[in-house]
Amino acid sequence: MVHIATGRSTQSTTGTHATRILGIVTLVGVAWLILFGLFLSPADKNQGESVRILYLHAPSAWLAYLAFVVTAAASALYLFRKTHSLAWDRLAGASAEIGVLFMGVTLVVGMLWGRLTWGVFWRWDARLTTTAFLFVTYVGYLAVRRLGGTPEQRARRSGVLALLAVLEIPLVHFSVKLWRGLHQDASVLRPDGEVKLDGLMLFTLFSGIITFTLMYAWLVIHRTRTLTAEDMLDDVGLELALAERRRESIPRTNEENGALLS
């Protein structure tokens, strides 16, 4: 018989007591953010109601950056620690998925906001362009994770790639900044989209950042657990298949033959 040493009691969900509490706190945070972001905080003098996009835009950007930093750190821990624990690799993968999702949200929401504030969806400035590159880089990272091979191959490949991204992104940012220095910003209706934040707006923004950080923690824990389950499923599938083949090749004992005949 194949026994699966999970080290954990068999359960049908990835939730535990702690993550349930975390989830509830996150949901309360979201409700709080909606209340403050959409109703209680004031409109901006220059931007009017559109400033409320900030409370979604800035926290998702923060979440995405946080996620990518965790991916890089977890990849480094996988590669440089002697144990080469796949848990770090799965954390890196889970974090990157969430990062890509929220970087996408940041870009879409940011473009909508840009249309309202600047009159255009896109400005070729260093921050926007680097963000787009970051997004594409991690989409590539996720594709590399799905290349196939053993979990160790996947971990090594994607780990190296995550660390290369740490090299790439500052270079891209620096070169785009130099490149933008060459041109003057044109066709922008209101060049400074800066928002003067009063107390309540700042409070709402920080609530957003805290809520999104909790949301990140909640999502990344669940996703890491499902990735663990996926890897386990692969192992179990392989072991079952091996056991099956082995059973076929072992000559049956007399009792088994007798049982089959009767």
Binding site: V144, L147, E168, L171, V172, S175, W179
Partner: peptide, 21 residues
């Protein structure tokens, strides 16, 4: 790796952007 023909441009082009600039 399987699918490398399609994967390589996605990985490589963002990285070489500084050289293009």
């Amino acid at each position: 790796a399987r699918g490398r023909e399609t994967l390589l441009p996605l990985l490589l082009l963002p990285v070489v952007a500084p050289v293009l600039i």
